[in-house]
Design a protein around this nucleic acid. Structure first.
Lengths: 331, 331
DNA sequence: TCCTGGAATTGAAACGATTCAATCCCGGTG
DNA sequence: CACCGGGATTGAATCGTTTCAATTCCAGGA
């Protein structure tokens, strides 16, 4: 495999000059640059990442920890997120390293190994918990990171989040505008930070619309289609009246719609349904699901931009991205 | 950050000895090893990946190319695959580098950059097309790789695949055993290699059961829930009689079930439905979907094992993994 | 013609590991 | 008691870059 010396020899210059051309980090006569570039192309030369990393002290690699044990993320939303992150990384000539971790306890060791071994320059945290041990660990080890989601009470750290509260307020307002007064709300356990914020948005939406919060309309269930299905069935079988339903995620909303169908109530006609995320399946549901889209591209770009700043030692501002209400037929 | 010299100094030995301990690649007195290990722990030392890579000439990193443009993979199946790959990599102390690529034409450049720069030791190919330009490129550049899926007519290369044909034969036999004679089949375009094999399995299954292949029961449609839905509606509206339906993927089967429901025919009672993949959602469908499970763990392990062999210059045997019929209520 | 000064180029020293060859150590043998 | 042999240890070279400091080059001014 060609090295920088080979290129230098072929172009009749020194390795230093080649390096300057490569990174344009030094003065090079246009004509010389030309010759070097030609040599590079002819040899099909690509700089050795390890050597570069060794000298530069950065690997230009983003670390993403993906839990795979109990906490495994199976919401298709995460596939979209990975796509978006990949794209955003590519735009900045960064690579994306996926480290999976079965065991939450091993998370911290994994983080250390990757960072201290300089395999990655910093991390992107997803799937945040309200109490997340990774955050204090990263903070006190001085490892750069950006979180997808906010957590309170952990001091300052950079994050990017979608404004779940705003989204839910908008959803409630939208439903109220259509005359709904009894709006059920399906949530996963509030220990998920995003669930907490979305729920708060629902409550605020009710207040803004002068509607009471009713315990009976509020259900906590699992973060799956099945969860949405069961909660909705419970709602129906208990005879709690409601004309609209908001689910904290599309997957749950899909489950809810299934339960409504089975009970002979047509979503979008008899009961309005709104989800959150806008996973690809939402548009294909029957009826197509009205939902709050998480703008993936924007999220990916914001995460990577913030990550870069953090890695460069800045303390970048956090970003709160508004979700977009996508009106379809379910509400 | 601590280096190998720091460890050496602290343990009162030379860097060479530390290296021997680290890789146990040399004779070290147990007592010395003990001292070195202690020093490592005390300093929280982790070897520098770049330096190591430079010297060893491998990066212990698996490259996975994820298309993100038109060809973007949105089937939740791929999220499961990524999980499984991550786990399998972790078992072998490998890292998984995800490179995304919007533009199919840029694939090859990306591959070269990653490999020649020694960022990865080889690739895992997913989303194979019948005619896949990546394969000849990798082959003639001598870059190690393993494909998830088979392609004909490209000479020999190592792959891991799930035996779609066997799965579909089994599905047909199972349905026939339950008395079905008119079995519809929903397929994505046969240019997807997996679609081709699964379809062949369906045909063989019919032959083995002495049933005719009927054009009217065979539908090609898009690889989404929507696709399954539309094809099934067409089937129903055309009045083609059938008592069972096989879809090439769970996602399509889910769409089909939706169409059946809407037409007032209960899947699992009026019409048997079988899918393929066993994505998490399959178990949560209504009724729960009978399907052919792709054993993800096994796939991940086989891919990584084969990849390791390929990277070590062996020409490892390919692996054909039988899918597992998961009986649920839809058939 | 000789200087001068800035631009272009180069040599050589890192970066942090691995590994070959050389040295050291030590108990056992002759 | 000298010597031997093999295990344990070490020194130094090396992997392929980047970058500082030194050198060369060259046009323009005196």
């Amino acid at each position: 495999m060609a090295t920088i010396r080979d290129v230098a020899r072929r172009a009749g210059v020194s390795p230093a000059t080649v390096s300057y051309v490569l990174n344009n980090s030094g003065p090079v006569r246009p004509e010389t640059r030309e010759r070097v570039l030609r040599a590079i192309a002819e040899l099909g030369y690509h700089p050795h990442a390890g050597a570069r990393q060794l000298k530069r002290r950065r690997s230009d690699t983003v670390g993403l920890i993906l839990p795979t044990g109990e906490r495994r993320l199976s919401d298709p939303f995460f596939l979209e997120l990975i796509h978006a992150l990949g794209d955003a990384c590519a735009d900045h000539h960064l690579d994306l390293l996926i480290a999976t971790c079965r065991d939450p306890a091993a998370d911290l060791r994994l983080i250390d190994r990757l960072y201290k071994g300089r395999r990655v320059d910093g991390f992107l945290l997803i799937d945040l918990q309200r109490q997340d041990p990774r955050i204090p660990h990263l903070q006190q080890a001085g490892i750069p990171f950006v979180a997808f989601g906010r957590v309170e009470g952990n001091g300052e750290f950079p994050w990017v989040d979608v404004d779940g509260a705003a989204g839910m307020r908008e959803a409630v307002a939208y439903l109220v505008g259509k005359g709904h007064r009894r709006i059920a709300y399906l949530s996963p356990p509030l220990s998920f930070t995003f669930a907490y914020h979305r729920f708060r948005g629902y409550q605020q939406g009710l207040i803004e619309a002068d509607l009471p919060f009713e315990e009976a309309l509020f259900r906590i269930t699992r973060l799956t289609m099945e969860g949405g299905y069961e909660a909705t069935r419970a709602l129906l079988s208990e005879g709690v009246p409601f004309t609209a339903l908001i689910a904290a995620t599309d997957l749950m909303a899909l489950g809810a719609m299934r339960a409504l169908h089975e009970a002979g109530r047509t979503p979008g006609q008899d009961v309005a349904v709104i989800g959150f995320d806008d996973i690809p399946m939402a548009a294909q549901a029957h009826p197509p699901l009205t939902t709050l889209r998480q703008p993936m591209d924007q999220i990916g770009k914001a995460l990577v931009r913030t990550w870069l700043a953090a890695v460069n030692g800045e303390s970048p501002p956090s970003t709160l991205i508004p979700p977009i209400l996508i009106r379809r037929e379910s509400a």
